[in-house]
Design a protein around this nucleic acid. Sequence first.
DNA 1: ACGCTAACTGCACTCGGTGCGGTTTTGCAA
DNA 2: TTGCAAAACCGCACCGAGTGCAGTTAGCGT
Lengths: 201, 201
Amino acid sequence: MSLRDRKRARTRQALVEAAADLFERQGFEATTIAEVAAAAEIGTRTFFSYFPAKEDLLFPESDLRVHAAVQAIAERGDGDGPAEVLLRALHIVGEDSDDLSGRLAALRLRFIREVPSVRGRGLQIQFDAQREIARHLAAAFPDELDEVGAAAMTGAFVGAVTAALQVLLEGVDDPGDPAQVQAAVEVAVDRALKPWLAHRR
Amino acid sequence: MSLRDRKRARTRQALVEAAADLFERQGFEATTIAEVAAAAEIGTRTFFSYFPAKEDLLFPESDLRVHAAVQAIAERGDGDGPAEVLLRALHIVGEDSDDLSGRLAALRLRFIREVPSVRGRGLQIQFDAQREIARHLAAAFPDELDEVGAAAMTGAFVGAVTAALQVLLEGVDDPGDPAQVQAAVEVAVDRALKPWLAHRR
DNA sequence: ACGCTAACTGCACTCGGTGCGGTTTTGCAA
DNA sequence: TTGCAAAACCGCACCGAGTGCAGTTAGCGT
């Protein structure tokens, strides 16, 4: 990795951290891109060579997650069926790695509820990720699934968990508490997939 | 209905039609709100008292559809279970009524593929509609479903059909042809829900 | 016919985002 | 080490979406 690339990665990280700080303090819409860029010590214009839009500051490593999930699908065990592999892949996508990603996750959750444009961007990213995973799932199980079947299955899983999670999070008083959120996610996965796994045996 | 309301409805309709014309001719992003407003003979500023954003011109009657679906849930037959009622409700949401809505549907489909902001807004509307339907579904079947279960079920249905439809539409050469699209929708519903309905018997 | 209210509209403004062109930095090779 | 091409940086001018405000117009009930 060249010096150029490392510097670029550092600046990118600085942008995300600066944005997290400002967003926490001022909210999403009240923070301008100029402020974020200034806090990371780059010109306003240069910001757009790092992120295509303001909302993407909240989803900085979405493609890495998807890539990890795809890899998990490729490295499936011999005994696993499509449902098990898919479930494990989705679990990987939903994981928080470092603590910055934890901070970001909390902000993301908050702004997905508060700011329409963030919710829109989030759904779009989820949709694209889902499609990518479905493609690889179909490739991994050519005998059991075709493209359409894999997409339907992935859509059903993701849709069910997302919708269940949304309802559960309405009842959470402090969305900033990672424990409550984590618990809600587990309940959502369990509740959403119970009927499917039950008849699957 | 007062004259005021009728005039307002006429203007709203004129906006949608003008937008449809301009969008067909110039594309979505190349058409400015000022142009649409001028074509409907209102001031640019006034546009925003009819639609909150440019994208909403492509989803002019989404709340009516949802309302119709909710009503269909309320008027369910005695022998129907949650799955049948939900399927019928979703069928209602997806219907095209007049021919203007047919034109709009084609444009919508095109721009959902081409323009990220339109895709984002569309997903957001779908998400909200899904939540509303789930709420009423839970209310209609208090013994079989709670809020979370209804949301999971609705999310699974909608997610499966949407994802399957997306894959199927990739293979359609002329997205402007309503027959091909309609056929794809039917296949998508069938394929997406087959495993569910099969084990449901 | 008369006031009251809702709708219409122009104006000024902010912010997100892009294209362009010039300057600085970096990687690499002679 | 020096030189050079590419890549990154950045200011500038610009556009369109969207909002707040204030003044005018038009419909509605009395």
